[in-house]
Amino acid sequence: MKHGILVFIEHRAGAINKISYEAIAAAQDIGAKLNQPVSAVLLGANFQDLAQQVTAYKLDGVMYADNEKLAEYTPDGYADAMENVVRARDPFLVIFPHTYLVRDFAPKLSARFGKGVISDCIRAGLENGELVFSRRIFLGKIDADVVPNSDAPVFATFQSGAYRGETAEKGEGAAVETMAVEVGEIRMKPEPAFQEVKSAVDLTKAEIIVAVGRGIKGQENLQLVEKLAQILGGEVAASRPICDAGWLPIDRQIGSSGQTVAPKLYIALGISGAIQHLVGMKNASTIVAVNKDPEAPIFDIADYGIVGDIFEVIPALTEEVKKLKG
C-alpha cells in the first residue's frame, strides 16, 4: 500500500540547501491536505549530522541513506540510492526542490518507475479530492494544471519560491533512521566545483539595477541603457540571451544561472520575464517593466509597466530623470 510523502533534502558543501526547506513546506502543505505523513530523505557519506538538522522540522521520519559512493553528487549514485529508498518506503508522492542537481538525476530515477517527473511546479492543491499540480509553461506566459496519470509513486519538483521556507513547520520527535543503500557503478567522475574568475561587479550590492533583454536587438544599442543607468546611479545588468551573445559579460547576468538580486529599483527593459530570469530579481522592492508585448510575464510582477517600444521609452525616461535630478 502506497503511503506517505517523501521529501528530498539537498545539501552541498556540507550545508543543507535552503530551498530544501521550501520542499519541506510543500510536502507538509500537501500532506495536511491529504492527511498523509511526511518523511524526509537525505543522501550522503557520513552526513548524519546534516540529517540530524532536519529533525528540527515537523516530520514523521528522517531517512538518512548512507554509502561512501554518495560522498559527492553523481546522477548514477543518487538515482541508485533514491531508488533504494523509494522502493523501501513505498510513498505515493516524492517531492524535490527544482534545482540543477535535482534536474540532473530525478528524471533518471523516475524513469526506473516507468514515468517522468511533474517538474518545476508552482502550486499544488486539491480539486474534487484529486491532487492537481500547476506548472508554468511557454516561458512563463501560461499556466498548466497537471494531474498524475499513473500509479504511485508520483515524482514532483517545486520551483524556487513556490513555497516559503520559513513556513515549514518546526517540530521534534522524528529520529534519524540510517539506511544502508546499494549503489552500483558510478560512470561519471566529478572534479571539484569552481567559480569563474571572481566577478568584477557585485550586483547584489547595487540599489538600482537597469536590466536589458532580447528587446535591445543589438550590442550597439546598449549605450542607451548605460546612459539611463548612469543618470540613475545604477548598474547595468542583463537577461541570459544578452550574455550568451557576448554583448555583456556573464557577471552582469541576472537569473538562475547568474546572480540573484533584490535592489530597491529594478528596471527591466525588453525582458519578457522567463522564469529563469524572474527567480533572480523578483524580490526587488520596486520593479519597472518596459516591453512591447502587453502579455509579457514580466508585467505579472511589475509595480509599474509601460507597454511600448524601449527605443522610445529609454531616451525619454533618461531625459525625465535628468530633469528631476536637476
Binding site: G114, R136, V146, D300, A316
Partner: peptide
C-alpha cells in the same frame, strides 16, 4: 503519465500600474 487538464493565463501577482497608455 501526466495529463494536462487545463491551461490558462497566470494570475497577476502584483497590481501593475500601466503608464502612458501607448504613449512612450
Amino acid at each position: 503519465h501526466q495529463k494536462v487538464t487545463k491551461i490558462y493565463f497566470p494570475q497577476k501577482q502584483k497590481q501593475t500600474q500601466f503608464l502612458g497608455n501607448g504613449d512612450a
